[in-house]
Amino acid sequence: MFITHDQLILQTQRPIDIIDVTAPIRTRFENSRVLDGQVFLFSPHTTAFVCLNEKEAMLQQDMLDFLERLAPPETAYRHNQEPVDGRLNAHSHLLGLFMNASERIPVAGGRLLLGAWQSIFFVDLDGPRPERTLHIQIIGAQ
């Protein structure tokens, strides 16, 4: 059984930033030489998440528009009355109720079993941030 851990350090540019991390995850997976197992991804942040979805520019803009409508930042949230770190980010925490801190991708025959249209995204709901972390654990047989 082979187990490895790595981190992807990201810098986000926008208040809500959807970053395609498929290529660096795939590279780390290929370097592991795991044939059967899984890739486990985890975001240790309360306002940044990981998800699988389709990479298409218009859809990504729809995602941003949807998230901004779902929890507008300018609403009078209680959490923003006394922010812990000075950030008015209640809307980011509320949006996080609908997202996942982790994803598990199966591996078989030396391939990540992503669907034909699936990409891996890191979604920061409270940017911009100079540093965000995505943990990558690869487990399996080589």
Rank of each mutant, 00 (worst) to 15 (best):
R129L: 09
T75Q: 10
G140C: 13
L88F: 07
A76C: 10
L70Q: 04
T133C: 08
V123P: 06
L52D: 02
P83K: 06
P72V: 01
L52G: 05
S119D: 09
K55G: 01
R129I: 08
I105H: 00
R111E: 15
I105K: 11
F29E: 13
P73L: 02
V50K: 01
Y77K: 10
H79E: 02
E103I: 13
A101F: 00
Y77E: 10
V39H: 03
R132E: 08
C51D: 00
D20N: 15
I3C: 11
H135W: 01
Q13E: 13
D126M: 02
M63K: 07
Q118M: 08
N31L: 15
E56N: 13
E30V: 03
F42R: 09
N100I: 02
C51A: 14
H91R: 08
E131A: 14
R26W: 12
R26N: 15
P72E: 09
H91I: 00
P83M: 12
A108W: 00
I138H: 08
N31S: 14
A57C: 03
P83I: 03
D126C: 08
F122R: 05
R69K: 12
R78N: 02
V50G: 03
H135I: 01
N53G: 03
T22Q: 06
H135A: 11
N53S: 06
F121L: 11
L35S: 14
R26G: 00
M58K: 13
P130F: 01
G96H: 00
E82H: 14
E103V: 12
R78A: 08
E131P: 03
V21D: 02
L125Y: 05
F42M: 08
E82G: 11
M63P: 02
F29I: 04
Q7A: 14
P72N: 07
Q118I: 06
I16N: 05
Q81W: 12
Q60I: 15
L97I: 06
I136M: 06
G110A: 10
F42L: 12
A57S: 10
V21M: 10
D62M: 05
E30Y: 04
K55I: 04
L52R: 14
E82A: 13
G109R: 01
M99P: 02
F40R: 13
F66C: 00
D65A: 14
Q61S: 07
N100L: 11
N80T: 04
Q118Y: 04
N53W: 03
G37L: 09
L67Q: 07
P83T: 04
L70F: 11
R28Q: 14
I19C: 11
V123E: 05
R132M: 11
R69T: 06
P44N: 02
G109K: 08
S92I: 00
D6E: 15
Q60Y: 04
A23C: 03
R14N: 11
H5D: 12
V84L: 15
D62P: 08
I18D: 01
F49P: 01
A71R: 08
H91G: 00
A101W: 06
G115D: 08
I120V: 14
R26F: 04
Q60K: 05
Y77S: 00
S119R: 15
E82P: 02
D65L: 15
A48P: 06
L70M: 12
P24G: 10
F40L: 15
F29R: 11
H5T: 12
I139H: 13
P44A: 00
E82S: 13
D85I: 05
L113T: 04
L112E: 08
L67N: 04
A48V: 05
